[in-house]
């Protein structure tokens, strides 16, 4: 029984994959401009580098910090569920864990990583 479910599930995901990657080509207008159509108007200069520039570097830093602190949540969840079973030992362990994180946060703040300068 589960084999059928698995097969269906696999087929469904594949179908979604195909649809999403090709829907714009199906629905959108056919690309008309060919050859020199790509060139800028007669007065414009040819572009030096690709259009979409890079995201500002600062944003990446915040993304990374978010990942670091968010993953720790993954450990809080099972701890929270199993707290009554282990009692005091778990408490001290988790407090040490959170304490370290706070130390890390304090250190980052002290170092001025958190300010968002241009």
């Amino acid at each position: 029984m589960t084999a059928l479910a698995m097969a269906l599930d696999a087929a469904f995901t594949l179908a979604l994959l195909l649809v999403f990657s090709n829907v714009n080509r199906w629905l959108g207008p056919a690309p008309r401009h060919e050859g020199d159509g790509q060139l800028p108007y007669e007065t414009g200069m040819p572009p030096i580098e690709r259009a979409e520039g890079s995201m500002a570097v600062a944003y990446y830093r915040f993304a990374v910090l978010f990942v670091v602190f968010d993953v720790d949540l993954a450990f809080l969840l099972p701890w929270a569920l199993s707290r009554p079973v282990f009692g005091a030992a778990a408490a001290t362990a988790m407090s040490v864990f959170v304490g370290l994180l706070l130390l890390l946060l304090a250190y980052l703040w002290r170092k001025g990583v958190l300010e968002c300068k241009r």
């Binding site: 990374v64 990942v67 670091v68 993953v71 720790d72 993954a74 450990f75």
Partner: peptide, 10 residues
């Protein structure tokens, strides 16, 4: 392993 992977990504 998930946590380690995250660290790796960072």
């Amino acid at each position: 392993i998930i946590a380690v992977a995250a660290a790796e990504a960072v």
